[in-house]
Design a protein around this nucleic acid. Sequence first.
DNA 1: GTGCCAATTGTTAGCGCTCACAATTGAATC
DNA 2: GATTCAATTGTGAGCGCTAACAATTGGCAC
Lengths: 337, 337
Amino acid sequence: MGNTIDRRQPRLEDVAARAKVSHQTVSRVINNHPNVSSATREKVEAAIAELGYRRNTAARSLVTRRSQTIGVLAAEMGQYGPANTLLGVQQAAREAGYFVSIEAIKEAGADAISDAVRHLTDQGADGIIVIVPHDGTVQALEGLTLDVPVILVGAAGGGLFSGALVDQKLGARLAVSHLIDLGHRRIGHVSGPQDWVDGRSRAEGWGERLREAGLADDLLIEGDWSAGSGYRIGRQLAAERTATALFVGNDQMALGLLRAFSEAGVRVPDDVSVVGFDDQPESGYFTPPLTTVRQDFEELGRRCLGVMLNALEGGAGAGTIMVEPELVVRSSTSAPA
Amino acid sequence: MGNTIDRRQPRLEDVAARAKVSHQTVSRVINNHPNVSSATREKVEAAIAELGYRRNTAARSLVTRRSQTIGVLAAEMGQYGPANTLLGVQQAAREAGYFVSIEAIKEAGADAISDAVRHLTDQGADGIIVIVPHDGTVQALEGLTLDVPVILVGAAGGGLFSGALVDQKLGARLAVSHLIDLGHRRIGHVSGPQDWVDGRSRAEGWGERLREAGLADDLLIEGDWSAGSGYRIGRQLAAERTATALFVGNDQMALGLLRAFSEAGVRVPDDVSVVGFDDQPESGYFTPPLTTVRQDFEELGRRCLGVMLNALEGGAGAGTIMVEPELVVRSSTSAPA
DNA sequence: GTGCCAATTGTTAGCGCTCACAATTGAATC
DNA sequence: GATTCAATTGTGAGCGCTAACAATTGGCAC
């Protein structure tokens, strides 16, 4: 009865009045403080429900100096990997009661990174997750003196930042081992850009494993992650025919390679075996279905948020967590002819 | 000089003291109010720079009741389309001085939607962009009585909400017209799920264009957007061989189809022509390179944010904007044998 | 009943900002 | 020089919440 209509959102005070307690008691109920009698708690909860009360985040943030927001900074956010990492982060964040705010950058330069980070801190982000797997990210971040935890995804934090990453070297070794087991002796690598952390780690893993097996590690061609670059390199490789097997830095380049080989009449896997990296949902339907190394990006994102929560609430340790990749064998690899 | 060190973040007051003006004047400078003399403005800006002052968003939000945050709710956020739409939204948002907060849902049920929307409004989002292209999204939203603008991406808002979408029907007609022009008379459609708005619109566009040309529209098979479903349908189609051309609901299903055809010895485009939809970056490297309909998701996202700003600042009109798709002809289509 | 302590509840202040309004300044007009 | 008015600057209050502290309550021992 009365003027129920015209007021906007109910506040703590309104709930308190309705439940005949003080606003502070209502606050305690909302925040699950101990030392509230169950009778009072019920009264308050009833009032909250009746009024449809929702806490005002801005007011809370103002006094607690916590926004319950995690900022995610990503380059290449439209790509499969980052997009799914973000997804994992978001899911885990939501479960933990955090919001996720995003910031995409086009070029991974130091300026772009510091601008984006500043934008995120302006919003009051309690922590920042950086998905910018380039060299230089760490340096760009170092010069920034942030007072919130920063977690690097897919890049080693150099001891300064926490990190979460898929073990790229292991993935590369898995791929190369598979090829060696099949009997290949001449195994090339179409790598990602060498100024990307992942590109370099995969190349390193490839080289290491090869040398362990006493094989030559001299056949490396650098691509740019795109299917187009894979295609161009594939044409070149089809003409040269030096390797019997190729470990390709990601599935997209592998697709381009497959296309070039198909055009050139090079049969996969009969003439050349190909292993990719990532295991995108489509990779099982390439022609032929691609043997590849699976990265679980969602899991990476979730674990990453775990590290963040730890830094935020547990307090202490930085440290880096690793997610293990997994070899998925399909039809693009076989024993050499 | 003296205790410069121990204080945390400088506030308006600190800047005011330093510039020897009132806090309100500083506020005016920050917010670009007119009626500040340029001398004062310079003094204040100098003080801001010296102190490294940054405005506290929470405090501002508390009093303005604006968070400068746009919430984006997306299903399938890890997919190419949504991820890139999100990217476009974020870029445009940033230019306009807004933050973007995300919320991903796994299942597009009414409960999941309303939970996610509530989470976003709890954060104080000034507006919400919904990228959930299922039937039922509009109804789920209708029952919610929100006091912020809502914009639906890829779904007609039914007059209640603003929308931003790619003209799916036009895209389908483009694809089918291309096939008809090539001389095909028996044109099938491998559609997306019919409870997805896009899936249905594409199927409708396909049917309409076919009937206009006096051709049969009875060859429709429903997939689920995945490459796997395209593969399964492709096997079936390869056995039946009823159509000389296929319009496929998206590029991923087309990939599966291509794979199935390749296995079954059906040549594309010699035996069957295939047109996809989306134009993902890889589609030009399928075997054969895929003729498809390009959707510019980033542009969609940007335009969508434009509509949002309009609703937020201009005030008035809802209305729906359309982005035009574009046919990209590659090698998976040719005249029938 | 009185005193004491713990459990529960209430009171006050203030987070950092913007709004509405009040006060001041300075130039232009008579 | 007094008056008027616009331009510029300052003052006070309060957004909705939580932290710190103060006050109240009830149970128990004596």
